[in-house]
């Protein structure tokens, strides 16, 4: 396997798509690496090391949980539903009800995208009433109905690559990414420092780690024996 193939690995590319995923991975790495660096520092006494490493790990872990569990879903869904109201005629925002559906679509190949849009269009025309009515038609009438649906393909009820182009995809992606960027800045630079720090100290006390508490001293008798 050449270096070109390793660097342009499509699995790694697909796994690291989207602001929320990228920041989630980075914060996850920080939660392991930063306490690791503290524990490797030889100049600090063991109790301070343990306290600082636990504090750093808890801060990163709480930030990550808040970021992925609350902030990103709220920002993405909020922005997407606002955009659905603002861009009423946008076929791409009608085809996908929430950002998760759009993100799953974005990862597909070109041929898979065409297939997915056909499935979504089928859903629109095959609602139970329409489907029953369609079944009652004679073969000639059915052909006519299909022709009508084909003509409707320009409208937003039937989704094809004609009304969901790459430009439309860029709009939906822009909504998802802009809301993620805003959520990232507000979540990690403002909300996390204000809230996570307040949760850390009670948790550390709960697990028996206190900043001022020193490591237990060796009994005098034991020291005498060592001497």
């Amino acid at each position: 396997m050449s270096i070109q193939n390793i660097i342009s690995n499509p699995t790694f590319y697909n796994m690291t798509q989207g602001t929320a995923t990228q920041m989630g991975i980075k914060t996850g790495l920080n939660s392991v690496a930063r306490p690791g660096f503290i524990l490797m520092d030889g100049d600090i006494d063991p109790h301070t090391k343990k306290f600082s490493a636990s504090k750093e790990f808890l801060y990163q872990a709480i930030s990550l949980a808040m970021y992925l569990g609350i902030i990103i879903p709220v920002f993405q869904k909020g922005a997407y539903s606002l955009a659905q109201k603002h861009f009423k005629d946008s076929a791409v925002l009608k085809a996908f009800n929430n950002p998760e559906q759009f993100k799953a679509f974005k990862k597909l190949t070109d041929s898979e995208k065409i297939q997915r849009l056909a499935e979504l269009s089928k859903k629109v025309i095959s609602n139970p009433e329409e489907f029953r009515a369609f079944k009652k038609l004679t073969p000639e009438q059915r052909t006519e109905e299909i022709a009508k649906l084909k003509a409707k393909s320009q409208s937003s009820d039937v989704f094809t690559r004609k009304n969901i182009t790459e430009e439309d995809e860029a709009l939906a992606n822009g909504i998802v990414e802009t809301s993620s960027l805003l959520g990232t800045v507000i979540g990690l630079a403002i909300v996390a420092p204000l809230t996570a720090t307040k949760l850390i100290h009670p948790i550390l006390k709960g697990i028996g780690l206190d900043k001022d508490k020193k490591a237990p001293e060796q009994p005098v008798q034991q020291l005498n024996q060592q001497a």
Binding site: T16, Q22, N173, G174, I175, E177, A189
Partner: peptide
């Protein structure tokens, strides 16, 4: 707003969020 969102949708880079967070 539409063209701004489309621009971000097309050109977003992996380092934008880290730079934005560090600046904030």
């Amino acid at each position: 707003l539409e063209s701004t969102l489309k621009y971000i949708g097309k050109n977003v880079k992996p380092y934008w969020p880290t730079v934005a967070v560090a600046s904030a």
